[in-house]
Design a binder for these strands. Structure first.
Length: 269
DNA sequence: CCTAGACCCTGTACGC
DNA sequence: TGCGTACAGGGTCTAG
């Protein structure tokens, strides 16, 4: 389940391995992802990879003709393999590269997407996105001003990409723990001091997760198939019934808006 | 406009 | 062993 740190981890390794190489052609086994894979991608040939960047959880491949926009959904992953290796189940798209390598997109649940854009500024999926959580634009001033009249629960609010992008269920649970805030607090009830703690907790958590190469619980693997290491640092996520590392109280779990929610009833208030 | 909930999908885990 | 069911959840869409 790639969130921002996982997509950033993928971006960094692809930048290292793909930029300056050429996409010879594209082979598609299944065009039915979240949306139908557009024709522009089918027809790509001899395209130099100019850059690889990220916006929110979207990976952006810059080519001379335009941009490939990739979203991993729940179960999407990329593997960089040599020419001889055979595809496996749910390998939907191959980018055949100039150096005898293949970049393979695998996605069992097909919640992911491959989109094409001639002009990122006018891209449907990228407009209306809130600030990047690790940018200066995302600060306590911004979040507090926005939180003021919001009648929703803080956890669901922080997962809304119009508020801030890239934070999924794992990192919102972790950030709320670090900030000492209960997930079911009403957003408008948080004071400035708490918002400062929250912004700081989000940035710290995401930075640490990127350093650890992301979190591998089920679906996320690096392009060389190695797992991320941040799961060892998880304080509440997927720890229901286990002891809080800080105070030894048992971690609680419930559902909030169809998503599993984890918290420590003593450390968070 | 704002907010809540349904929906898309398939591998895995678990109870009987 | 085998079958049915719940669960995982990002983002979009619809309903109220």
């Amino acid at each position: 389940m790639p969130e921002l740190p996982e997509v950033e981890t993928i971006r960094r390794s692809l930048e290292h391995n793909l930029v300056g190489k050429t996409i010879i052609r594209v082979f598609i086994r299944n065009i039915r992802l979240r949306w139908i894979v557009p024709n522009e991608i089918h027809c790509l040939n001899k395209q130099l990879v100019l850059s690889i960047s990220r916006r929110a959880k979207y990976l952006l491949l810059e080519l001379p003709k335009g941009w490939i926009i990739i979203h991993f959904g729940m179960s999407g992953s990329l593997r960089l393999e040599s020419f001889e290796q055979s595809p496996i189940k749910h390998d939907h798209i191959d980018l055949i590269m100039s150096d005898n390598k293949i970049l393979r997109y695998n996605d069992p649940r097909r919640f992911g997407a491959w989109l094409w854009s001639n002009d990122l500024a006018s891209s449907n999926v990228l407009s209306n996105l809130g600030p990047e959580p690790l940018s200066d634009e995302f600060n306590a001033e911004y979040l507090f001003n926005k939180s003021f009249n919001t009648r929703t629960l803080i956890k669901q609010w922080l997962m809304d990409p119009k508020v801030v992008v890239g934070i999924g269920n794992i990192y919102v649970n972790e950030s709320l723990f670090i900030a000492g805030v209960l997930p079911n607090r009403l957003t408008m009830s948080l004071n400035k001091k708490t918002i400062i703690l929250l912004v700081d907790a989000i940035k710290t958590t995401l930075c640490s997760a990127i350093e650890q190469g992301g979190t591998t619980l089920r679906n996320f693997f690096h392009i060389d198939n190695k797992p991320g290491c941040f799961n060892q640092k998880l304080r509440v996520y997927a720890r229901a019934g286990k002891m809080c590392y800080t105070c030894k109280t048992l971690i609680c779990k419930n559902k909030q808006g169809q998503r599993s929610t984890f918290w420590c009833p003593r450390c968070q208030s």
